[in-house]
Design a protein around this nucleic acid. Structure first.
Length: 196
DNA sequence: GCAATGATTTACT
DNA sequence: GTAAATCATTGCC
């Protein structure tokens, strides 16, 4: 079942980040469909320094994050990797969930082709830049409505027990000072598809 | 206008 | 373990 607007509109990016574990992300391009289960997320909020929109500072790049929940925020990092975020909360409140890793389900052959791989390995989607390349997300998807027909998320009844979900500090944001230590990273325990 | 810098990945020593 | 690849965005001059 496709997730609807209400799921994303909540004023609680941490709850959304946690509940996204086990949900399935689906990306459609023409007849090619690629999908995978979310196993790793990170939450970002205008309240802390790790976020592009810290202190609700609006720029051309992060404008999408100020949109109401249910939109895709895609941007380029390190000049070569697209990162995929899911915007949450009401319009004007910049919060988003970064998808860091998925477990491939359908369209694995398309994913491997895009990544230039011959055999299925965890490196196919185990990282925020890798999974976008695998399922074909790029800047064209920035600002896209996640209740549309091109890119969306589904609940397939997969529910992880509390004991299977781990929290930890977010990755790669040392510049955020004390906020870098916030336990806002959520992972599915023992999954082989997690980023390192 | 220009220089600095990442919410990363990969290859190499 | 370390470093290079590579560029849009940002902030400062």
């Amino acid at each position: 079942m496709k997730l609807d607007k209400d799921f994303y509109l909540r004023n609680n990016v941490l709850a959304v980040a946690k509940e996204l574990l086990g949900k399935v992300i689906i990306c459609k391009e023409g007849r090619k469909i690629a999908s995978g289960m979310v196993v790793e997320t990170e939450a970002y909020s205008f309240k802390e320094r790790g976020c592009h929109a810290y202190q609700n500072k609006r720029t051309a790049r992060n404008a999408t994050m100020f949109n109401e929940g249910g939109h895709a925020y895609v941007y380029l990092c390190y000049g070569m990797h697209h990162l995929f975020n899911i915007v949450t909360n009401r319009e004007g409140y910049a919060e988003a969930v970064l998808i860091r890793a998925i477990e491939p389900l359908e369209g694995i052959e398309w994913m491997m082709a895009r990544r230039g791989m011959e055999r299925l390995k965890p490196t196919l989607t185990s990282g925020p830049g890798k999974l976008t390349q695998a399922i074909g997300i790029n800047k064209k998807h920035n600002g896209l409505d996640l209740t549309g027909k091109q890119l969306w998320l589904e609940d397939r009844g997969i529910l992880h027990k509390k004991s299977q979900i781990e929290t930890s500090a977010r990755i790669g944001i040392d510049y955020a000072g004390a906020d870098a230590l916030l336990p806002w990273r959520f992972t599915v325990k023992d999954s082989i598809w997690l980023s390192k």
